[in-house]
Each structure stands twice: as C-alpha cells, then as structure tokens.
Amino acid sequence: MAEIKVKNIAKTFGGYKALSDINLTVADQEFVVLLGASGCGKTTLLRIIAGLESASEGEIWIGDRRVDHLPPKDRGIALVFQNYAIFPHLSVFENIGFGLRMKKLPETEIETRVKRTAEMMHIEQLLQRYSGEISGGQRQRVAVARALAMEPDVILMDEPLSNLDALLRLEMRAELKGILAQSKTTAIYVTHDQVEAMSLADRISVMNGGRIVQAAPPIDVYRNPANKFVAGFLGNPPMNFLPATKGEKGKWYVSEMPFDGPNTYLTNLEFAIRPEDCVLSAQGLRAMVQVIEPLGPHQLVTCNISGSMFRVILESDTALSIGQFIRLEPKKDRICWFDPTTGKSTS
C-alpha cells in the first residue's frame, strides 16, 4: 500500500532535455496512465520511478521512503515490459517464482503464491512450459503474473499490451483492470494508445515534450482539455477547431454565428468542439458535406465550414449527400476555447 510522489524530476541526456519539471502524486491504489506520443518522455519517467534510470534532478518517494538513491530491488516495485522479458531458460513456474526465490521464501510459500497468481492470470496449465513454447498472449500473462506474485507496493507497466493483436488486447485490457483493482496495488501504466488510457485509468497524465501537460480523470481530460495538444491527441477523430473573433457583450463569432464565450482581453480565440457534440439544427453553423463514412452505429461526416475542416458524428440513418449544405449546432456546455498563441484553454 503505497503512495508515489514524484517531485521536480528532470532528466537530460547529454544536451537533450528529456524530462523537465515533472510533479506527480499517485494515491494509494490509484491507477495512473502516462499517455503521450512516442518520444514524449513517458517511458523515461517510468524507468526513473523503477530505478533503471537515474534522474538528473528531483526526488522520488514511494510510501514514506525516498527511493531515488535505492536500486530497483529495494523500491518495492514490479515491472512489466512491452516485450514481456520472460526468462527463456526457466519454466513458467520458475519465471513467476523468480522474485520469490530471490527473497528466499520457503518452498511451500513460493508454490502457493505461484499457483495463486497463475490461476488469477489463467495460466495454471502452462506452469511447466518454457517461454519458447507459449504464445505472445500467454507470455504477456506470465509477465503480469510474475509482477503480481511479488505482491509489490507499486506495479509499473510499460506498454504491456502493445505487442498483442487487436482482439487479444481488448480482452487483456478488461482483465488487467479487474485484476489490478482486485490486487489493490498502486499502478502506473505507460501507453500511447488513448483508448487504452481512457478505459484503464483512474487518472490520466498526458505528457508532451518531456512535461506533464494535464493530469485529471479520463472524462475531464476528454471534456476539458488543458490545451490544444491534449484536445487534438485525445479522441478519435480529434476535436474540431474553428477561429473565433470577439464581438460585443461577451459574444464570440464563429463562422458568422454568435456564441457565449470567455471574458478575456484577447480579440481572437479558437473555438473547439468534439465531433460527437454537434446536432443538426436550423440555428447551426453552415457546413458543406465533403466525405461521408458510414461506420455502422453512426456515420462520420467530414464537412467544410468557412474553409476549415470540420468532422462530425451523426446518426447513421441521417440521409446526406456530398455537396449538400447542412447546419450543425454545437452543444453549448461542450464547447472549449483556446488561446490561439499559447494553445492554453481559456474559460
């Protein structure tokens, strides 16, 4: 049972600043996902917490202990790698029991713990096999079981599902969430997959350029992105942006339509709305239909509003034709506003 505190962590590789000014507190039993594009520093941060990399500045606390001077084995963590890193010379049983043997636990204790975690991960029939004799999905299960068998304070996962095929990934995602909730372990999970992040996390930390740009519950990050990067990174398709100019009495004009907007000294803002937050209505923005993509439950329509691309998700039974003009009304409470120069959210 442990809280993780990351204080002012910075990391430089030669002249390159990989991480700067990282502050993050993960509550006991919380599941935090570090989300970001490749190269944003999320894996480096995880490795610093694990002790596989040393920070150039800052402190790491796990529970009540400062751990950044401790080797990985003394930090009370367990790690799951993207490529699983199953020891090829040991059987599945010995892989799961490896850490327990290092702790010199009694044989009976090792056996019960290995059996219990193996059953939890549904691999109890594979215990005598070697890593070369099991599938990728099974290897993944072994890697998670090996981490869980340690009963660590903190479990760290570096893109653990990325090497699985799409269907298996979905299945493992749900299973992982259930198992981690059950084991009551604090978890930090690194991924570049926004859907994975949304579905797993209690809280998402979005990283960009070596900084944490927003840390909030998934739905907050989705609804109220802190800046344009987060707005564009989350959501598929991403948020729509349209230029807005200041009018009178706190009104902002977007493609000649007035909207209530934030009270600011700026004269230009960016108006943003998610594709699913628009409805067909006579009081909407005038849009020309350019591409229609039926996706089954709904259709994705790419439009042109005053020269800007605008994507919208509509009911699949809405009859549309290319070149047709429609009016799209954004839901008032879902509109976001961004400062066009800094990219930061204004409200």
């Binding site: 694990a50 002790g51 596989l52 080797p71 990985p72 084995k73 930090r75 963590i77 367990a78 790690l79 790698f81 490529n83 890193a85 020891f87 010379h89 490896f98 850490g99 290092m102 702790k103 090996r146 340690m150």
Partner: peptide, 25 residues
C-alpha cells in the same frame, strides 16, 4: 535483451546476481 537483466533487477537481483542467474545460463 537488456530487459531480461532489468526485470531481474526489479525482482530482487543486484548487478551480480542478475548476471549469474539470468545472463550466464
């Protein structure tokens, strides 16, 4: 792969035991 060693370090090995228990075999 270096990850094999790194996993061993997180599972209670130091550099030496990580080498003798994982790399050497």
């Amino acid at each position: 792969p270096i990850e094999l060693e790194e996993v061993a370090w997180t599972l209670g090995c130091n550099r030496l035991t990580g080498f003798t228990k994982v790399v050497l075999p």
